Amino acid sequence: MAAAPVRQRSGPGGPRAQLPPCYYEGYLEKRGPKEKASRRLWTCLCGNFLYFFNNAKDTHYVEKLDLSGFVSLKDDCSRDRNLEAARLILRMKDGETKLTAPNLESRELWKGFLYSVTDLNVPSCLTLLPGQLQMLKEVVDKERSRRRTRTPTRAPPSPLSVPLVGEIPPCFRPVSRTEAEVLLERHPDCGNMLLRPGRDGCSLAVTTRQDLNGSVFRHYRVTQRDQGGYVIDVENPIPCATLHEVIDALVEKTAGTLQPFLLEEPYEENITYVSANDENGERILHTAPSSPLPKPPALPPKQGLPLSSPLSRSPAPDRRILTSPVPASPTNPMRRLILSPSPLTQTLNEELKIKLEKRRASQE
């Protein structure tokens, strides 16, 4: 592997000014993906790069590592000849770099600075002191400011400039090609295919990831047709009416090997809030109690009129009861309603029948 071009690392005003600001530095043992042995190098985290020098006083770096392809950091628990040394695996999209810090505390600090620069956020999963966390916060602020002020070589197209038609599939992500690869690499359990804007800002693209002795990425262009719908631009173009059909077509063509990328963002399990101490002004994060809120006392029942009154003794009016002796069936979906007389009506009819019979007997 050819060595990186040598660049001086001198004081302000010299060639060192061409490098991004240095956030953290120290000795690390490094072994790249194609290196058979580790080398002890003075390592500087400058901006979004790791610069490696032969020693702390050297003014020329011998190698650099671009962290834009960062995937993950993982502790390496394998034993080392130096019992105090702590190993770390820096996983990039093009391979793994093994780093060895002098001790566990140094490894945690390196992880904190690397996470802060790559994610632009202070990591909460590390055991660090308040002063160290404050340093990481300052690094995040500086790196954000640096990225905002630097002049890009060309203005990239807006990822949202694509005039999408119809319902957007949940695997759509407004990311670039490189960001899509990193996203699929970081979350292999969430799917291996996502839809994203194309580089030209006028088309779409599908990025896929599969394992074949490492990650294999593929990118497919998806364009809109003038007569409506979309087409997957491959050797034999595949027309699709909607973006959902684009994803379904790729799943079907690969016999289910490709699956849409669905990343569920975690939600908080507790309610938290920040308050300031009245004495020293220190801001503290509190967790709200999880016990259920007390129920309000029940209102007393309203005093209403009695259901029955001794003044109203008139018999209830004759009411007909609706019955449904015939159940519903597929051939007779509508239930047949039959009107049957109430018990009070039957009693009155019997009394009237007896009176009529007596009247007839007296006339005879």
Score class of each variant (00 low, 15 high):
Thr223Trp: 00
Leu356Thr: 12
Asn82Tyr: 04
Pro33Arg: 09
Lys93Pro: 01
Gly112His: 00
Lys358Gly: 06
Arg91Ser: 15
Leu212Val: 11
Thr151Val: 15
Pro170Leu: 10
Gly198Lys: 01
Gly281Gln: 12
Glu245His: 14
Ser38Gln: 03
Lys355Trp: 09
Ser290Cys: 06
Asp211Phe: 10
Gly26Val: 03
Arg91Asn: 12
Asp200Gly: 03
Thr118Pro: 03
Ser78Leu: 07
Asn48Cys: 15
Ile89Asp: 11
Cys46Trp: 04
Leu99Trp: 07
Ala255Thr: 05
Glu364His: 09
Leu299Pro: 06
Asp226Asn: 12
Gly95Ser: 05
Arg39Phe: 00
Glu269Lys: 13
Phe261Asp: 00
Met135His: 13
Val222Thr: 09
Pro310Met: 02
Glu138Phe: 01
Leu50Pro: 05
Leu212Cys: 14
Thr323Asn: 03
Gly229Thr: 04
Arg16Val: 09
Lys30Ile: 08
Asp233His: 08
Tyr61Ile: 00
Glu264Gln: 15
Pro310His: 04
Arg313Phe: 12
Lys36Arg: 11
Phe70Arg: 01
Ser324Leu: 07
Leu99Phe: 08
Pro306Trp: 03
Glu282Val: 09
Tyr115Ile: 05
Val165His: 08
Leu126Ile: 01
Asn54Glu: 11
Asn55Leu: 06
Pro327His: 04
Pro315Glu: 13
Pro315Cys: 08
Gln210Asp: 09
Glu282Cys: 07
Ile271Thr: 12
Ser78Trp: 00
Ser314Glu: 14
Ala85Gly: 04
Asp119Ile: 04
Lys358Val: 10
Arg148Thr: 13
Ser124Val: 08
Ala241Tyr: 05
Glu179Thr: 07
Trp110Asp: 02
Thr347His: 12
Ser106Gly: 01
Glu364Ile: 07
Lys253Leu: 07
Glu143Leu: 02
Leu128Gly: 00
Cys125Lys: 11
Tyr23Phe: 14
Pro306Lys: 04
Tyr220Leu: 15
Thr223Ile: 12
Cys44Asn: 06
His219Lys: 05
Arg319Lys: 09
Arg79Glu: 13
Tyr220Ile: 14
Pro289Leu: 12
Ser291Ala: 15
Val246Glu: 08
Ser116Trp: 06
Phe172Glu: 04
Gly47Ser: 04
Glu268Gly: 14
Arg144Glu: 12
Gly256Asn: 11
Asn270Val: 14
Ile247Lys: 05
Ser145Thr: 07
Gln303Lys: 15
Pro292Phe: 11
Pro102Arg: 02
Leu114Tyr: 01
Leu337Pro: 00
Leu164Gln: 09
Pro297Gln: 05
Pro152Tyr: 11
Thr118His: 05
Thr59Asn: 15
Pro5Ala: 13
Pro297Tyr: 09
